[in-house]
Amino acid sequence: MTAPALPASDTTAPSDRNGVSGDTGRERVPRLWHELRAVHALVHRDLLRLASQPVHTALMLVQPMLYLFILGGGLAALIPNSSLGGGYQAYLFPGVLMMTVQTPAIMVGIRLITDRQSGYVRELLMAPVHRPTLLLGTCAGGTLVATVQGAVLLALVGAIGLPYDPLLLLMLFGGMLLTSFTLTALALTLAVSLDRPEVFNMLLGLVMMPLLLLSGGFFPVGNLPGWAHTLAAANPLAYGVDLLRRCIAVRVPDRTAPTTVEWSGWQPPLLLEGTLLLTIGILALLWASHRFSRPE
């Protein structure tokens, strides 16, 4: 009982009286640094989770590989190389990369909802940082996990007849990072507006299949009727696939595959596509942060 009376005289150093060690973590660091530590904490959490579930992670990689080698390998026999400017598997590759990053990106959205249900989000909200920081950290974690998973698939470029060109790999990696970010941000935008994971799953089940098919990842959209072109031009996945495919085309010029995104016959340049994806991602994240930060 003497304990509270002793340090009550010093009002200047409230941290010291409770800490076991005198300098318990409340060192003077800039505000921004605190926020960055919080972002890092959330990214760290995602990486730890990834590492703690190796089987789960491996299984998530199985599906894109099935598509790449079984579907791709099977259809390759039907499709003449000439029509695609290269083997079908190489054509399919950007789409498969997209599938790979898409799954973990969506998982981030589902986890935000379940975390909110379990009360974990409330624990996060107790942290003395801005709420947008928390969402930014979640998004960064999801992006990183998605990219890491996609990077595993990059190791397979040799198996589908593409060269192990460091610059190509780097460009594909960058492209995946960008698309992962945009997809994660979009998933979070959806997640902050919904409060039940079932609704989220149902919506995705409804939307994901057409989006994937219209992304140009599996077949050129060019042969579909006009309305499909319009849909493809509004499909973020199409931009992602297009971006990745054109990264390949830059380094392996003989693979001039038909592109998907066209704005009334004009094909936007690579950089514009990238900027567009980034902008969509940032806008989505801003909107999600706004929703997330509404005070109770």
């Binding site: 318990t24 973590g25 530590r37 996060l124 003395p128």
Partner: peptide
């Protein structure tokens, strides 16, 4: 992770 959310440095987080 929680300690880092509260802005503790890596060393302090581990210690705490």
């Amino acid at each position: 992770i929680h300690a880092r959310l509260y802005g503790l440095s890596r060393r302090h987080a581990r210690l705490r």
